[in-house]
Design a protein around this nucleic acid. Structure first.
Lengths: 190, 190
DNA sequence: TTCGCCATGTAAGCGGTTACATGATTGG
DNA sequence: CCAATCATGTAACCGCTTACATGGCGAA
């Protein structure tokens, strides 16, 4: 039996609430709205073919608008079972890669004023994303997704995670900006 | 002029406080103690050669214990300049990849009791790491690294980030475990 | 004497990013 | 008429992981 990659399970996850066309999946994986994974279409189409060959998904084809057929994919029973088994496997915690935190390690080598601008710009980026997530979270909450029995509780819980994580990131960026402002003013008038 | 990869800048970062041998660098990049980047030795040695060819680092060789010479690498003036320039460049925010959050999106498909165990195990893993980081943070603070002018302030600031981030992650895991416990008990006695 | 550490390197393979390719429909 | 959207796919490249390879030294 062929082993399924994390990308494969990600696609099974996206399909867990019902059938979607390949293009629908591509749109949902383009930016991480709530759940933390992305994929490009060049990855998605071959992976759908692999999942299909492994019998985890199946599809109906109709004549779409373009030169090729449109395929609507859905989980098979085997797919649902494989997903359920993967969900509860002990998670392999991969070390995070964060370029900004890496930079911070060597911040003594940078110009404090320019580095401060960088942190402030990043804080603003994260604040915009947080506003977006807060809106989505509120929408889901209004639909009752805060209840664990609600079918969208999973999406709600991923947004809950973002709402915990982003404010602390923003707080950290601003804290560093303040420390760098101190440094710059001390350098200016010694 | 050859462009430098993020890995290349990571190595420049590790060298910013003074010369190190390749093996020293390998040890520091093996696990992310504080700053968020890792690399394997199979990546590091070729990258050191590239940085050397680009004139950003230089090395002295002596006869080490093994069959090959031991090289002690240090930043050149060009290397220090390249690092300083990179540090303040607007950061490219890559979408995070987090398998656990991905799983959460489809948690409705899993057995609640087994999924609960998974979150609790993860919370414990993160708690152990947090204890480690807290210890390192305290050591640095005792050495005065909390002051922005201290040469180790960069390392202190990355740990500060971990100390903000990990507790919220643990809190989220436990919150989900509680929701899944509710679900399991409701399923048991309907 | 066997195991772990110091110390440097190479090779194979997978996963992800960027770019290319085709073509119909809908809206400005 | 042009641009965006729907819709599916391929190709080249880069970065990362896993595994292999060599060999001296000190400790159990």
């Amino acid at each position: 039996m062929a082993t399924v990659s994390t990308l494969g399970y990600a696609l099974l996850c996206v399909l867990h609430r019902g059938p979607l066309t390949g293009y629908d999946i591509v749109r949902r994986m383009r930016r991480p709205i709530g759940y933390y994974w992305t994929a490009q279409q060049s990855q998605i189409y071959p992976e759908l073919a692999r999942l299909s060959a492994a019998g985890l998904i199946e599809h109906e084809a109709d004549s779409g608008p373009g030169p090729r057929q449109r395929k609507t994919h859905r989980l098979t029973t085997a797919g649902r079972e494989a997903l359920a088994e993967w969900l509860v496997r002990p998670a392999v915690v991969r070390p995070p890669r964060d370029e900004t935190v890496l930079r911070t390690y060597a911040l003594a080598m940078a110009d404090p004023t320019a580095m401060r601008e960088m942190y402030l710009a990043e804080a603003e980026t994260y604040e915009r994303q947080l506003a977006d997530f807060t809106g989505q979270h509120a929408e889901l909450a209004a639909r009752g997704a805060g209840d664990p029995t609600h079918p969208e509780f999973g999406a709600y819980a991923t947004l809950e995670f973002a709402l915990l994580r982003y404010p602390s990131r923003i707080q950290w960026c601003r804290w560093l900006a303040d420390r760098l402002a101190e440094l710059a003013s001390r350098n200016a008038k010694p």
